[in-house]
Design a protein around this nucleic acid. Structure first.
Length: 160
DNA sequence: GCCAACGTTGGC
DNA sequence: GCCAACGTTGGC
């Protein structure tokens, strides 16, 4: 088995929160229109990778639970849909610009680990999400940081 | 609602 | 290829 990677993905709970993912079971992560985030989904995210699910634009922002990559990169269908706000006229079926992955629900943390708590924790120094001005909606996470976040959430990830 | 910190676009 | 203008993200 290849080495598993860890990620953090941001979503606004009023748009598509972890509760929505739980209700759906799985989803395709559409609407990403940032090349760096696209590249992660296209090149690096593999089935089985674990994802810290982060709620932004809420009070307080923070990590609310876990998801898992359930399908590797394929073209985001919304780029071809003229009625979608994610429609991209420069994208073609032969050369799609935007690639997404599928995520499946894993679990909620019993309590949100707030952004403030992440910032307070010395073991999480260097984690991207706590950096000022960091807007990237998909971020790689160091394994040690991933496990520390689970620890802060009092969540046992050893069986995953 | 404000605004800092980006990323993208397009004129030149 | 530069960079000003503009748009977006997201914490506060």
């Amino acid at each position: 088995m290849s080495k598993r990677r860890y990620w953090l993905m941001k979503s606004e709970p009023q748009v598509y929160g972890l509760d929505d993912l739980k209700a759906d079971g799985s989803t395709y992560w559409d609407g990403v229109r940032n090349y760096q985030a696209r590249n992660f989904m296209r090149d690096d995210m593999k089935v089985g990778d674990l994802v810290l699910y982060y709620h932004s634009n809420t009070k307080p922002p923070g990590i609310v639970g876990l998801a898992r990559v359930s399908r590797e990169g394929y073209p985001d269908p919304t780029q071809f849909d003229e009625n979608s706000k994610y429609f991209d006229p420069k994208s073609t079926a032969e050369q799609p610009r935007w690639i997404l992955v599928d995520l499946e629900y894993v679990d909620h943390f019993s309590e949100k680990v707030s952004l403030d708590a992440l910032k307070q924790d010395a073991d999480l120094d260097g984690m991207l999400v706590i950096r000022k001005g960091q807007r990237l909606s998909i971020q790689p996470v160091e394994p040690i940081h991933f496990h520390r976040v689970c620890e802060l959430a009092d969540f046992d990830a050893s069986a995953l």
